Simulated assay, not measured.
Amino acid sequence: MADRVTQPTLDVLEALLGAKDFETHGWDIIKTTKRAGPTVYKILERLSGGGLLTERWEEVERKPGVPRRRFYKLTPTGVAHARQLLAERRPQAASRWGRLFGGEAHA
């Protein structure tokens, strides 16, 4: 994945690291990153294919006509990889997201 680390990819990784338990659904990632749906879902597909992300469908019963959400969660390897990439390419993320780096904000 190192050859395809774009700014949108870093945005998605940052959104996933900022999510509770490193898990969130696609629409939330789109809102957080302000990136287009096709861009976000292509990145999620690539992360999943690389073993950095798992996917699951929402299990709760939704209202009729409201589709289930798909949740995405970074694997332990994905968390480590995302932290490393963001530390290298967005050092300012450390001060904004202390949680990204194991609860410690790096200057």
Rank of each mutant, 00 (worst) to 15 (best):
E55W: 11
R62P: 04
K63W: 15
Y72E: 01
A94T: 13
L16N: 01
R99E: 13
E58F: 03
G102K: 08
V5G: 10
A107M: 07
L53H: 02
K63R: 15
P38G: 12
V5A: 13
K31T: 04
G18T: 00
S48V: 14
E88A: 12
T9E: 10
F101E: 12
A15Y: 00
R89H: 11
S95Y: 10
R68D: 15
T33V: 02
L13Y: 06
T24E: 01
R90A: 10
D3K: 10
Y41D: 08
R68T: 09
P64N: 10
I43D: 05
R46W: 14
T75S: 07
R99Q: 12
E23A: 11
L100C: 01
D11R: 09
H25N: 09
K20F: 02
R62F: 06
D11A: 13
A87I: 12
R69N: 00
K20S: 02
D28T: 08
A19P: 02
L17E: 00
R96H: 07
R83E: 15
V66M: 13
I30P: 00
T54F: 07
S95P: 03
R46D: 15
G78L: 02
R96N: 03
V60E: 15
Q84N: 05
P76Q: 06
T32L: 11
V12W: 06
E61W: 13
D3A: 14
E59K: 15
F71D: 00
T32W: 06
T39L: 06
L86Y: 05
R96S: 05
L44E: 10
G37Q: 10
M1R: 09
R35V: 03
I43A: 07
R89P: 08
V40I: 07
R35F: 11
I30V: 14
L86T: 00
R62H: 08
A94K: 11
G78S: 07
K34W: 04
A36I: 05
R56Q: 12
R96W: 01
W27A: 14
Q92T: 07
D11Y: 08
T33H: 03
I43C: 08
T6D: 06
H25G: 07
